[in-house]
C-alpha cells in the first residue's frame, strides 16, 4: 500500500511540475519535451488505477504521434517565446486574480467533496471481477455494442477533421508538373508526332 502511495505522489508531483514547465520554459522545444514527460507520468497514473490500456494508448498516441508532431512543428516554425511572454506579463495581474480565485474555489469544492448516495448504484460494472477480463478486451466488448453510437460518431468527427484539414491546406498549384501515368501509357504517336512537308526556301510556321 505504501509503495502505491509513494508511486502515486511521485507521478503526480512530476506531472504537475512538468505541466508548469510546459508553460514556463524559455525554449519551446523544451516545452514540448516537458509535455511528453507529463504524458508519461499521466500514463503511470493510469497504470496505478488499473487502466493499463488507456496508459498504453496515451503513450503510443500522444507521445508517439501527437507530441512528436508538435516537436516537428515547433522546430520548423521557430516560435518567438520571449515576445509572447511580454504579452503575458501585460495581463499577468488579471490572469493571476482569475486563476487564483478559480484555484481557491476548486480547492474548496474538493474539500467539500462527497458522493451521491446513488453514485455506487449508478456506476455500472458490466464485468464481474471473476471474468478476469483484461482492459483491452473489456473495452472491445462494449465499444462495438453498447457504445456503438459514440464509436461511430467519433468516426464522423475524425472524418470531418480530415476533410477540414484537406480543405484548409490542399492547394492545386497551377504549373506544377505531375506524373500522369494514365496519359503517358495511352499516348499515341499521332498525338505527338507531326510530319510536315517542307518546301525548300520556306520555314515551318
Amino acid at each position: 500500500m505504501i509503495v502505491e502511495a509513494i508511486v502515486f505522489y511521485m507521478f503526480s508531483t512530476i506531472l504537475l511540475l512538468s505541466g508548469i514547465m510546459v508553460i514556463s520554459a524559455r525554449n519551446p522545444v523544451h516545452s514540448v519535451l516537458f509535455l511528453i514527460l507529463g504524458f508519461f507520468n499521466a500514463a503511470g497514473l493510469f497504470v496505478l488505477l488499473g487502466a493499463e490500456f488507456l496508459a498504453m494508448i496515451l503513450v503510443i498516441v500522444y507521445v508517439g504521434a501527437v507530441a512528436v508532431l508538435f516537436l516537428f512543428v515547433v522546430m520548423m516554425l521557430n516560435v518567438d517565446m520571449s515576445r509572447m511572454r511580454d504579452n503575458l506579463k501585460k495581463n499577468m495581474t488579471v490572469a493571476a486574480v482569475v486563476g487564483f480565485v478559480l484555484l481557491g474555489e476548486l480547492v474548496w469544492i474538493f474539500s467539500n467533496w462527497h458522493f451521491s448516495e446513488d453514485a455506487e448504484l449508478n456506476v455500472q460494472t458490466p464485468f464481474s471481477a471473476e471474468d478476469a477480463m483484461d482492459n483491452t478486451r473489456a473495452l472491445g466488448e462494449v465499444m462495438y455494442t453498447d457504445y456503438m453510437l459514440f464509436f461511430q460518431m467519433a468516426g464522423l468527427v475524425l472524418l470531418v477533421a480530415m476533410i477540414g484539414a484537406i480543405t484548409l491546406t490542399l492547394r492545386h498549384r497551377p504549373g506544377v508538373k505531375r506524373q500522369k501515368i494514365n496519359e503517358q501509357v495511352n499516348r499515341q504517336v499521332k498525338d505527338v508526332l507531326r510530319v510536315e512537308q517542307v518546301e525548300s526556301g520556306s520555314g515551318i510556321v
Binding site: 453510437l149 459514440f150 460518431m153 467519433a154 464522423l156 468527427v157 470531418v160 477533421a161 476533410i163 477540414g164 480543405t167 484548409l168
Partner: peptide, 16 residues
C-alpha cells in the same frame, strides 16, 4: 457524452 460528441461534431466543421 452524446451531448459532448455532438457538440464537437457540430463545431469542428464550423471552425473549418
Amino acid at each position: 457524452m452524446l451531448a459532448y460528441v455532438g457538440l464537437e461534431l457540430m463545431s469542428l466543421p464550423l471552425y473549418v
